[in-house]
Design a protein around this nucleic acid. Structure first.
Lengths: 211, 211
DNA sequence: GTCTATAAACAGATAGAC
DNA sequence: GTCTATCTGTTTATAGAC
């Protein structure tokens, strides 16, 4: 965190996020990152101690940004009635899709997914503990309110993963999807189509949970 | 393809597949690959011309393997009645999940997904054209038979992606899922639980398509 | 075909001037 | 804080012995 408004510092984080995200941590070179940030290679050592420090700074940056977007509501999900819980789920899913398909957040998401795909990554631990687990738990509680099924059962956990996973997939497999759909990127009409389909799926699943 | 039963050659491909898949193409070193294959670094240049040639050989290997597993049935999907089409979809989804979660194919899937996530990868083009597009098209035709909706509409294409995407997600996000579920890897009972959930989702979606 | 030895380019880190 | 210059190690590729 620290003084995150230092210009060189943030320029480096932004450039690193892009290159780590698009090429992977090991493949990205500090030289190229410094060049993109229009500064010197030594700035990385000065500001972050080294390449690994820059990686952690990127993780904190992403975690802070996502923490804001995916803020948990203050209310207790257990208090929601069935229909309220369902519309909360719909709204959250819509936000997740808008987030994962937006070009602005492509950097964050790609970086994050690459890190999370590596079990041993030093970044994985922190982000999982601070961001993912608590939010997944919260979604499970909302799922319980929406369906009456126990929040911490294996099947409810998997249900939540399967719904969120659909949205994540459209970012991860973006090149494949976009080629098959003949889309360049995710223009607004494409995002609307994806949202519509995934909300439809969610409603179908909730409906089938018992009617 | 060529003589794929040469021992050193296949040992190199197998080792490369593992290292490319788990660490990424750029991050993996030819030295480590040769060591794992218990041969000399120069064998890579001899058999494949270089690191990039080894990458393409891995792609062909994976494509051949997946082509066998995901063989398209000879019959025309348009001939299926609604219930037959639905059970074909269920069966295919089950096979996809079994494939993506099996430890044996973890290598192939990880390698493939890494390659497909890179739009510019030289491997992407070939695999997309020879494997993915034709199978996605076939699934869309089966989806049409199962729901009556036009196979090449945007929404049906997205529906197929969303269902397949769920299965792919459980491989891509395996570290996250397994940590949250407190699973080590995907033991048989876990695979059964995932299959059960995803088939449930599929049935729910098909049911909602119009009843 | 498989090996050793080495070349040429690249990486990240660091010392020190300003 | 930002720069140049350089150190040290590692990478892929290749020449040539066997």
């Amino acid at each position: 965190m620290q003084d995150s408004d230092h210009p060189t510092r943030t320029a480096l984080i932004r450039a690193a996020l892009r290159q780590f995200g698009s090429e992977g941590f090991e493949a990205a070179s500090t030289r190229a990152i410094a060049a993109e940030a229009e500064t010197n290679i030594s700035s990385i050592a000065y500001h972050f101690g080294g390449k690994e420090g820059l990686r952690l700074a990127c993780a904190d940056f992403v975690a802070a940004r996502i923490g804001k977007v995916a803020k948990l509501g203050p209310g207790d999900p257990a208090m929601l009635d069935r229909n309220a819980a369902r519309s909360v789920l719909r709204r959250l899913l819509r936000r997740i899709v808008l987030f994962t398909t937006s070009p602005a957040s492509e950097l964050f998401v790609s970086f994050l997914l690459r890190e999370l795909a590596q079990p041993g990554s030093p970044v994985t631990e922190r982000i999982f503990a601070t961001l993912i687990e608590s939010r997944h738990r919260a979604l499970c509680r909302i799922w319980q309110a929406a369906t009456g099924r126990p929040a911490e059962s294996d099947d409810v956990r998997l249900a939540v993963f399967s719904v969120v996973g659909q949205a994540v997939y459209f970012r991860l497999a973006a090149p494949v999807v976009q080629r098959r759909m003949r889309w360049g990127g995710y223009p607004p009409f494409a995002v609307r189509a994806v949202v519509k389909r995934l909300v439809f799926n969610l409603d179908a699943i909730l409906e089938a949970e018992h009617g």
